[in-house]
Design a protein around this nucleic acid. Structure first.
Lengths: 146, 146
DNA sequence: CTTGCTCTTGCAATCCGGTTGCAAATACAA
DNA sequence: TTGTATTTGCAACCGGATTGCAAGAGCAAG
């Protein structure tokens, strides 16, 4: 069974209409390594039939409404969408490396999943672990300059 | 000594110009229970001499730059500002707790600093550890609702 | 297959928080 | 008091997100 058929069935099961936009967007989110912005999704889909900007916003919000995706504002105040896991929970430990030169974001695989110790009464829903610095590509010139 | 004189001295100590806008905004942030949006601050200051929209943005960003305030995008993708802890200085290596309900930012003191493992060639300059969730004050109603 | 209803899409206009360029005002050191 | 770099105010602008509405498409019924 293809991923598309899989998703198609998933949508149909909840009495929703199966449209190309929904299939393509959800498939994309499911295959993504990290949260995708509206712009990321638009770019990723523009090789085939392009999807209208507004439609894309609506599809993304619809997925969130259906519990199939999560919507989070990132540090630059743009929304990022990620596919929900089977149980509907967002993944808890999130480690990123942000290059301050080129702005690229890398996912760190070896997440040191440090359980945060919180004051009494506090509850955590998401942990962001973000390392800033210079990536391998941008770091070389800096080293040479020393 | 008044709070204003206190802040005035604080600014002067770091070689910064003391202006009414800076004094008023920082005093406001320090007295705030939760993170304030640009709009919140503007509204809170409009009884006296109104502060220009743009000036306000610039003052807020300047405070962040100086390490006197924190800036976080809330779940509705608007920035919220809160005063840094008294010493103001070291938010390089410690963790923050961001309450997704009230927007307040807490500094977590007891962070076990796990050195991040980076791919070869990568260099880190700053590590941000941000825990999202509900603070003690906001968590109570949620508990009661169960 | 065709019909008909409803949901979805596309387009244009709009909203809104935030930013930029530049000239006028002002803090503060000399 | 004066000189100068910093800060402020204004207007224009940016870009992500939203809204209104007419045209198009999914899908169940016949």
């Amino acid at each position: 069974m293809t991923a598309s058929q899989d998703i198609s069935r998933l949508l149909r099961e909840r009495g929703a209409r199966v449209t190309p936009a929904r299939l393509r967007v959800l498939a994309l989110l499911r295959g993504a390594e990290r949260g995708l912005s509206h712009h990321d999704v638009e770019k990723a889909l523009d090789d085939g039939t392009p999807v209208d900007r507004v439609t894309l916003y609506r599809v993304l919000d619809w997925l969130v409404e259906q519990g199939l995706a999560h919507k989070v504002a990132d540090e630059n105040r743009v929304f990022r969408f990620s596919a929900a896991t089977a149980d509907g929970e967002p993944h808890l430990a999130h480690a990123h490396f942000v290059c301050d030169d080129c702005g690229k974001v890398f996912c760190l695989q070896d997440t040191p999943r440090t359980p945060p110790r919180l004051p009494a009464g506090f509850a955590s829903t998401q942990v962001e672990f973000e390392v800033h610095g210079h990536c391998a590509a941008c770091n070389v010139p800096a080293e040479a300059a020393r």
